[in-house]
Amino acid sequence: MTERSLDDLIDEVVIGLASEEDCARIEKLAERDSEIAARLDRARTRYMALDETADELELPAQMWERVAADIATKQASTEGGNPAEIVELAPAIRNRNRWRIMAIGAMAATIMLAVVLGWTLNSRLEPTVIAVLLDAQGQPVALVEGARNNKTLVTLLEAAQVPDNQVMQVWTKPNSDGPPVSLGLLPSERSGVLEVRGLPSPAADQLYEITFEPDGGSPTNLPTGPILGKGFAKTPVF
């Protein structure tokens, strides 16, 4: 590639004419080569005055809540943890497959450990049902064990990123055609035991889910916020 065509390409990336592949190529080059990074930045700076010519429009009232909810659900997945870790992982992307296998192995080990710990440490709970709650990406985020007296042990399998001024609320559907019923809040953002009265004993295939709700719990007494994870109960084989 001649010098001139690289400059052409950089300009085309900046004004939006380059293909996605070319954009990715230039970004990669800039990551490795600070001289190219500087050229890219110079080209961006040249055109940036045009961004200032756009109208300053009013954001919709819920924009922050929408973003905060997205961040909460995306971080609840296993993808990144806190953003600083993304940098640590970047060099390992080439070994992605190895990472995946390790991740799946670690996940399986975590679940095994959680199940074993849950059963040994809380043997007094005597769960009649157990549900593994999965997030939108299908990753396990919590283990729910329900006992006959509707004592429910919730074990989080990773630290959830709860948005400011929100709380995790645990729900179940005692009747698959009926509305979800709150089992309680996890205010400390940690695993906990919840107790409710007046519900039928939990049964296999009963739905459990955790949502993010405003402090104090859902104002409507029905799930309103984004779902951290959900799953159906199974009867454990002792």
């Binding site: 600070s34 995306k74 953003p83 870790e85 993304i86 940098v87």
Partner: peptide
């Protein structure tokens, strides 16, 4: 999500 990748020295 990408904030950790931002490098002020590069732009």
């Amino acid at each position: 999500r990408r904030a950790g990748q931002f490098d002020a020295a590069r732009g």
